[in-house]
Design a protein around this nucleic acid. Sequence first.
RNA 1: GGGGGAGUACCCAAGUGGCCAAAGGGGGCAGACUGUAAAUCUGUUGUCUACGACUUCGGUGGUUCAAAUCCGCUCUCCCCCA
Length: 414
Amino acid sequence: MHDSGAGSVYDTLLERGYIAQVSDEDGVRELLAGTGVRFYIGFDPTADSLHVGHFIPMMVMAHLQRAGHVPIALMGCGTAMVGDPSGRTDLRQMMTLETISANAERFREQMRILLDFSDDRALMVNNADWLLGLNYVDFLRDIGVHFSVNRMLAAEAYKQRMEKGLTFLEFNYMLMQAYDFLELHRRYGVRLQLGGDDQWSNILAGADLIRRKEQTEAYALTIKLLTTSEGIKMGKTARGALWLDPEKCPVFDFYQYWRNIDDADVLNSMRLVTFVPMEEIRGWEHLTGSQLNPVKERLAWEVTAIVHGREAADAARQQARALFAGPGEADDMPETLLDAAELEAGVGLLELLERSGLSPSRSAARRLVRQGGVRLDDEVISDESLVLTAADFADGHRILRAGKKRFHRLRPAD
RNA sequence: GGGGGAGUACCCAAGUGGCCAAAGGGGGCAGACUGUAAAUCUGUUGUCUACGACUUCGGUGGUUCAAAUCCGCUCUCCCCCA
């Protein structure tokens, strides 16, 4: 884990491909050339776990922290009460403050995987502290005057909503985020806000506000969203987003997501989600086809190690190698225990597929069998009415496979 | 406040009394081919005690032998006028 010693952090960010837009490139470069710069990124706790979409901005914060700057992670409990319309086609589900606060608690824990909060090397603040107590009329007179509705409507973030409709509630989001920036400038001297590229107009609004209220230059820098080479958002899995919480996305699945990445996206991902030095990454540029497989494995290990720790990454790698390469198997494969009584009576294959989570329903399990997608150990099972009894477990456990990539261990309970 | 329009499966979107578990596309899943990739081809994609049965077309109550389709009420959203 190391950055290239030479060059400024700004150049590191640029080279690794994080930067999407900057309000004043020279200004930001100069600012970051110093040390101890406080900058912030806001995270609205609208779900109970962070996902890869948040992970990229976190990586940027980590790079900057390692270069001696001070990241401020803003928990958007106040802004989450309103909901950011940027990039959304419809109104977010309104959330209660309790839910939001509980989510923020999870976010806080997950932030620690990448940021060092000790000795004020990074700060965590909550905009509920200043947003929830605001007086409406005061806010309008103090902040609202500085916003032109005409200009707001021209913002890309709102344009998309002009067809589907935009509520006044959401329309205010930009003002709140702008106010956050101002508030953090006043409290901590923050002059730089980072965010996903969809946050561009919101961040600029804040920089403008600071300029007007404080006559100080503030900067906006947006980070590229994690997309495939075809511009499609990455991080979606069959079960939804690629969550950082192992409860919501098992480590093995997380690892496999990166292991199975498209050839065209390997190096780009390597730059964005790992700390592997650029010199090393450049050395892989000429690789093509199956030569990229070891690189994919490295990528998967590196990200997994950052998010879940080295041991978990080692385990996932070992498990994957065992399952795909040889007849072996790993220890921490998900498993289902079968008690003696049910083995006595016999357990149906379809039931097992459903219970293990390999199939969402028995109908789906039946289809899977019919299409030759089910294997018990290495044998394809075509009999959908197959029943397993204690005799089938004479050698201990059996491995149930759905398709080529999903595995589950069945084991008699002791 | 007045007028018009829309809500269909994971998403988009056909269907306007029976031939509808509901066209088509996307996505997902499986198989073939491969490199645990992509592309391509094939199959599949409501549930179940499965050649049949049951539940689904915003919600609810009706009309009818029969409703996603007709009527009343209701919820949500969009557009035009104010």
